[in-house]
Computed example of a mutant assay.
Amino acid sequence: MFFILGLGTLLPWNFFMTASLYFQRRLNTTEWSNGTKVVRKEYYFNNWMTLLSQLPLLLFTLLNSFLYPRISEAIRIAGSLVFILLLFILTAVLVKVPMEEDRFFSVTMATIWFINSFGAVLQGSLFGLVGMLPQKYSSIFMSGQGLAGTFAAIAMLIAIGSKMDPETAALGYFVTPCMGTLLTLFSYLVLPRLVSQLSSQHNCITHNPSDLTYTNSPIWVMAFCVMFVFTVTLSVFPAITVDVKTTSEGKNWELYFISVCCFLIFNINDWLGRTITTKIRWPSKESRLFPVLVISRVVFIPLLMFCNVQSRNYLPVLFEHDVAFSIIMVLFSLSSGYFVCLSMSYAPQLVEPKDAETAGALMTFFLALGLSIGAALSFPLRKLI
């Protein structure tokens, strides 16, 4: 059940991200002029999608202390799932509705903002819920989150491989998260006793005021690390990586290239990186090497920018072959999942037990901040290419 709940929290972000090829087709603004293909208008869809997906997480993380005590847990979780379901249904319906590009872009961006706003409330509420359970339930929940992207990537591969017309394939693709959201809602509703028991336990617990403001606390190192990992990751994925083109001449492979080499490779290895931390925890939480390795991930930004990203105006292509791009993506995603999971698991161990809840809230804020900074950086980085 908790695996399904974890899966459901990241369905909105992953299904919109993985469907970037569908949205690019709907926003196709190229035209032929004197025998040359010219871009009439550039929407920068992937950049805006990334930014408007992550800003709600940062906003609602800041609003947690105000929002959560005033709205019951059941309304927050069930209500968010219902609204996410309705917005997915709207997106599926729009597949069959002809619409002028500017209007379609505006409607899609509004949908992305609201669906990720409800997703942020859902994620924060469920993190609070599983936080009252033994550690193994948190691991199961995080594992479900890690596989949400793989689920979306496989759904896209099935849609492409179905050989149906693009509209029908896209409709089937967006119906899939509707079913996933329904399953998530059902999973939550069949746990009323557990939810009630956990809520009662939570209300009975009293916490002493926490003070994590002293700058020498090692938790600030972990907060910086989780922020920096996501800043690097979101600055190039998916806004830049989704524009990498295959050098293969096979038309069938061209259809599958981004779904496999960008989304599937990233999500599988990100999940694998998280899973590895259950067996290997290196460097240690006290090691100075840990933040050094996290900062060294910045090398992936130029490496991916020098891949065969099209179109480009300034930088040369240094890694043209598909294999080179795939190897870089494996290392990029594996290190992302590994260092994020280590940072999040080390943080509570660096404070007194009474401060663990405050430490978790602090880490969640810096995680959201890193996602938002990375999404914002994707705009100038894409321009530089």
Rank of each mutant, 00 (worst) to 15 (best):
L198I: 14
L198E: 00
S199L: 08
S200M: 07
S200C: 01
Q201K: 11
Q201A: 10
H202Q: 14
N203F: 05
C204I: 02
C204N: 09
I205R: 13
T206L: 07
H207L: 12
P209G: 06
P209F: 01
P209A: 13
S210A: 14
D211R: 03
L212R: 00
L212M: 00
L212K: 01
T213W: 04
Y214G: 11
N216D: 12
N216Q: 12
S217C: 04
S217G: 08
S217P: 00
S217W: 03
P218Q: 05
I219A: 06
I219H: 05
W220C: 00
V221T: 13
M222L: 09
M222Q: 15
A223Q: 07
A223I: 00
A223R: 04
F224C: 01
F224D: 10
F224P: 06
F224V: 02
V226R: 07
M227I: 03
F228W: 15
V229R: 00
V229Q: 10
F230R: 07
F230Y: 15
T231F: 12
V232M: 11
V232K: 10
L234Y: 14
S235I: 08
S235M: 10
V236P: 08
P238L: 08
P238R: 08
A239K: 07
D243F: 10
D243R: 07
V244Q: 09
K245L: 07
T246F: 01
T246E: 06
T247V: 13
T247K: 04
S248G: 14
S248N: 14
E249Q: 11
G250S: 14
K251F: 08
N252P: 01
N252E: 15
W253S: 03
W253Y: 12
W253E: 03
E254L: 00
L255Q: 14
Y256M: 04
F257C: 05
F257T: 01
F257D: 05
I258S: 15
V260M: 07
V260K: 02
V260T: 12
C261P: 00
C262N: 14
F263L: 03
F263W: 05
L264M: 15
L264R: 01
I265T: 15
F266L: 14
F266W: 04
F266T: 09
N267Y: 09
N267E: 15
N267R: 00
N267M: 11
I268A: 06
